[in-house]
C-alpha cells in the first residue's frame, strides 16, 4: 500500500491552494455535502473542472482540521444521510485572502501572457 497515496498527494499538492479556494467559495452560499460541492464546481466551471473524490475528501478534511469549515451529519432533500460542510468565520477570512492572491496571480500571469510582452524566455510545451 505504500506507494499509491504518494501519487495522489502529488496531484493534491498541485491543486492544493486552488482547490481549497474553490471549495470554500462553494460553501459561501450555504452548507453543502461533498458530492454537492464537486457537482457545483463541475457545473460552474462548465464541466471544465472535475474534482476527483480522492482529492475532494482529503481537502475537506484538511480544511476542517484548519478550522475553516465545520461538518455535521444531516438529511438531504431526498432524505439521504450526508455529511454537510459549513464555512466558518476563519474560513471566510481565508477565502477572501485566497481570492485576492488569486486575482493578483491571474493579473500577473495575464500581463506576462498578453501580446505586448511577446518575448517569453520559457520554452513552450507541445
Amino acid at each position: 500500500m505504500a506507494e499509491k497515496p504518494e501519487q495522489y498527494r502529488n496531484r493534491v499538492d498541485l491543486l492544493q491552494g486552488t482547490l481549497d479556494m474553490l471549495i470554500l467559495r462553494q460553501l459561501q452560499w450555504g452548507q453543502m455535502h461533498g458530492y454537492g460541492i464537486a457537482q457545483g464546481i463541475r457545473l460552474k466551471s462548465g464541466e471544465a473542472l472535475q474534482v476527483e473524490t480522492g482529492s475532494l475528501y482529503p481537502a475537506l478534511h484538511r480544511l476542517e482540521r484548519q478550522g475553516w469549515v465545520k461538518s455535521k451529519w444531516k438529511l438531504t432533500e431526498s432524505s439521504q444521510r450526508a455529511k454537510f460542510y459549513k464555512i466558518t468565520k476563519d474560513g471566510k477570512k481565508q477565502l477572501a485572502a485566497e481570492h485576492k492572491r488569486w486575482e493578483r496571480m491571474v493579473r500577473a500571469i495575464g500581463a506576462v501572457m498578453s501580446p505586448d510582452s511577446a518575448m517569453s524566455p520559457d520554452k513552450e510545451r507541445a
Binding site: K4, V12, G54, H61, R62, R65
Partner: peptide, 18 residues
C-alpha cells in the same frame, strides 16, 4: 469508476488527520 477505489480515498483522506 469515477470515484476510484473507495478505501484508497479513505486512506488518503485519513492522511490529512495527521
Amino acid at each position: 469508476r469515477e470515484m476510484g477505489n473507495p478505501p484508497l480515498v479513505a486512506d488518503v483522506t485519513r492522511a490529512q488527520w495527521g
